[in-house]
Design a protein around this nucleic acid. Structure first.
Lengths: 351, 351
DNA sequence: TTGTAGGCGTTATCAC
DNA sequence: GTGATAACGCCTACAA
């Protein structure tokens, strides 16, 4: 662990000069090119790495951000992993470190943040399930001067910059695809009214009337998307002899449930009924019939969140940003493939 | 961001006293109880938090560890998320920060580590896919004094402590379950010879002979477990009229492929054929028939890895540790449930 | 029982 | 062009 001091000793120059040269902070004048080169060489040879703690201490920063994620309800969706991939990529470029924590409830959230608040981090990225009481907690922290960026689908407050994908756009992307496929009787599995807006938009664009028989709303346990909702939606529609030629679910788990029930009822996917989900989960391509799904761009959003937080820490102006959801088409909305083995093929473009 | 200095000023005492009191480092003697109490109170009132950078600088540590993970081939398994949950839990207790990075190849790995090596981290936790050239890289870093702990199924070197779950034990756990269910003709979907050992052990315990017709070995693309292997294994067995009453796969994805092919062939799960997987992926419970699977304890192992690394950094003696895999039984090896909706129920005990 | 002094590695300011 | 000095916040001998 060589320090500036060692490089300086080696060359019999001063530490401050070495610092200036290595950081390109030479002011108006500059150093003798030959000397500068020798300094760079020695640094290289000794394998010098800046001590981030010392630099941060001097700068009054922490060069670290906390990432707080509520995992509940997203298991298997790969969202957390995608978000972290984006965040880690961006923090690496910025020579920042993370403090990663998963929290289960608002109490644990408060506890963690209190522990970190100052002295350890420069700011906070919050994502995962949007807990009802979370906003008060975050606003409290915000008013005490802690930079915060959220990664929810939409901003939870005007004062907290958010990196989102609009819920209505998510479902609208799926609806446009279904409409383009010629489907008109689209069963909507809904647990979130914000997303239902996208369903209505899609119908409207196609000049279709909303049929309440085709909308199955159930907010699920704990406000999360569950497989059972898909099962129930399909079961009810079939039991009531409601005709439908497509299922537009608000999550991949719901879509899976719907597909399972359709298969049990002897329906063929996609010949009889086509199905779309949301999240572009890793298991979407592993399903019995690989599932068409809308990508919420979590990896991109993670990167963007780090950037926003950085601006916030530097007191630069910031504002919420939205990413456009991307539809990935798979077999559940395509003509059946001759060889089931090749169903794993994938038309994914982002991530 | 109050400092020790501010507390000291407030009470007109010295910084060092405040430091000693707050850290319980009073040496042999001790401070006046009344004063100590007042110091604690003021710290509390001012919301004092230790500046981790300053403390780490003084201690010659970084209070940060790098976590390097190769994601390839594990998408959807939830392993990365579980590992990170364990690591983040343990690092929080230790007031450590992480530098999280996902790498794609050995070149990127080397680049990342070189960037971090000194000045930013105290040590390294490596997990994910075990890349062939990784060992040389790690041994090089080790010889240069960087503390490293690996989280692979088995140690890759004597000098690098590892937190593992033995591959043979993983499959053995599944085999014992299948044997206990009375199954004797067990089709093994294999991509990893180390795990095949567990298959043989299981047969041996039951006094069974290995039948080569029942073992389908295919290392898959890029040494990873893929769905197609399960498809092909079942297809071949059925085509050759090989009788079997169970499928023991080496991963959940393989097991999914096998189940899909069995269903397409009109077999009933679990009545005709029972199926087991490995990873206890989130999607195991979301499958058409919820899948019995072996948990590799990644969350526990992540925690343990942080602990080992801590010991390594402190130059305390360390050695590799193994965790015992845990089988989670679901419908794919149980009598069918009357109500398909309740198939999501789960007998999971850990994680 | 409390205080003083020095240093961890870096950088900014100012002097030479 | 280059160097001396001070400071970031914390900790720990050592002194009083």
């Amino acid at each position: 662990m060589p320090s500036l001091q060692q490089i300086a000793d080696e060359l019999s120059v001063s530490v401050s000069l070495v610092s200036k040269v290595l950081n390109n902070r030479l002011g108006t004048t500059g150093a003798r090119p030959e000397l500068a080169a020798r300094i760079h060489d020695t640094a290289q040879r000794l394998g010098y790495r800046k001590n981030l703690n010392a630099a941060a201490l001097k700068a009054g920063r922490q060069q670290a951000i906390a990432v707080l994620i509520h995992r509940h309800g997203s298991q298997g969706s790969g969202l957390v992993e995608a978000l972290l991939a984006g965040i880690s990529h961006a923090t690496r470029q910025r020579h920042q470190r993370q403090i990663l924590s998963f929290y289960d409830g608002i109490a644990e959230f408060a506890e963690i943040v209190h522990e970190y608040h100052t002295g350890m981090i420069d700011g906070l990225i919050v994502s995962g399930v949007r807990h009802p009481n979370l906003m008060d907690e975050l606003l409290g922290l915000h008013s005490r001067g802690l930079p915060i960026v959220t990664v929810f689908n939409r901003p939870i407050s005007d004062v907290l910059p958010n990196v989102g994908t609009p819920d209505d756009q998510i479902i609208l992307a799926a609806m446009r695809h279904l409409i383009a496929l010629g489907r008109r009787r689209i069963l909507h599995v809904s647990s979130l009214k914000d997303r239902e807006v996208g369903y209505d938009l899609g119908l409207k664009e196609a000049g279709l009337e909303r049929d309440e028989d085709l909308v199955f709303y159930d907010r699920g346990d704990d406000n999360t998307f569950v497989l059972e909702n898909g099962v129930r939606a399909v079961r009810r529609a079939l039991a009531n002899n409601v005709a439908f030629d497509a299922v537009c679910a608000q999550s991949d788990t719901q879509a899976l449930g719907a597909m399972h029930e359709l298969i049990r009822a002897g329906k063929r996917i996609p010949e009889d009924i086509v199905v779309t989900g949301v999240d572009d989960s890793p298991f979407a391509r592993l399903a019995f019939v690989p599932l068409t799904s809308v990508d919420q761009r979590y990896e991109d959003r993670g990167q963007q969140a780090v950037e926003l937080l950085d601006r916030l820490v530097r007191q630069q102006p910031t504002q919420s940003i939205d990413f456009e959801p991307v539809l990935n088409v798979r077999q559940s909305t395509e003509p059946a493939n001759a060889d089931p083995e090749s169903t794993v093929n994938d038309q994914r473009t982002t991530n």
